[in-house]
Design a protein around this nucleic acid. Structure first.
Lengths: 137, 137
DNA sequence: CCCACAGTTGACGTTAACGTAAACTAGAAG
DNA sequence: CTTCTAGTTTACGTTAACGTCAACTGTGGG
């Protein structure tokens, strides 16, 4: 059932963040939960938005970026010029993400292979020390 | 020739950062260039360290993390307990990086496929509008 | 000598993304 | 009723990673 409701602390514990963080995202315009009185009530859609935000964070996106992306998922623009602009934004965003992916993949592989080499040097140094006893021996 | 020397502005322009940034890294203990008088002189090794720092940044590492990693590349520890600890640190770091790689790959692929879907929805909406003329027409 | 230019230190400013604390309210439990 | 538990708003604090600015030094050119 996709019409489930969540309290703020439900979401907080689900995603292992604090309620302060969730309110902060709202303050920045990334979330707009319903209110029952003054208490926030979150929908399944809100939950997904939060997921998008956190994923964006892992990828190094700013909250502004995530806000942009979230807005791409529910086009309230029912006229074609807006839609065309949105499509362009989506394509541009995808381009950025792909480029970032390429760069990060290379960086990560480089770093791993350099760590491999560093380890190897250490192991060799260790072997050398065991053959030739140290001067303190 | 690996014994080239660089001025601070050489490196700054090479890596497209400011001299302030380079001095800041030194302040944080990530770099220790020679001095001629009070002027900083950078070696090829310093250049590589800087490269490591900037790559770390792209991967979302903190300067502290990068400092750690840099220290893995020149073990001044010539006794085996230190070396063994260092090897452990290297392996742990590699584990972290690999996990990060896995997560980022998944995040990026998810995000790209969702952007694809969002684009598709937009295009469909656009087509619908062209078939049925809008109410303002 | 004067100037421009590259370099230096030191101090304060800035931004993002929250943390922390205070002071309050509303509802359930004993 | 009191107490506890979530929730709320408002406001100030914090950290990382630099930016900006001021005041100074050293060096080569004309």
């Amino acid at each position: 059932m996709p019409n489930r409701r969540y309290s703020i602390s439900d979401l907080a514990s689900d995603f292992d963040i604090t309620t302060r963080t969730i309110r902060f995202y709202e303050e920045k315009g990334l979330l707009n939960p319903e209110r029952k009185g003054q208490t926030r009530i979150y929908s399944a859609a809100d939950r997904i938005k939060l997921k998008l935000i956190l994923r964006g964070k892992r990828l190094g996106l700013s909250l502004e970026d995530s806000k942009d992306i979230i807005e791409m998922y529910h086009p309230e623009h029912d006229n074609s010029p807006q839609l065309i602009k949105l499509i362009d934004k989506i394509r541009e965003r995808r381009r950025l993400i792909k480029e970032q992916l390429r760069q990060q993949l290379q960086d990560l592989n480089d770093m791993i292979s350099e760590l491999d080499q560093a380890e190897e040097r250490c192991v060799e140094a260790l072997n050398d020390m065991q053959k030739k006893p140290s001067k303190t021996a």
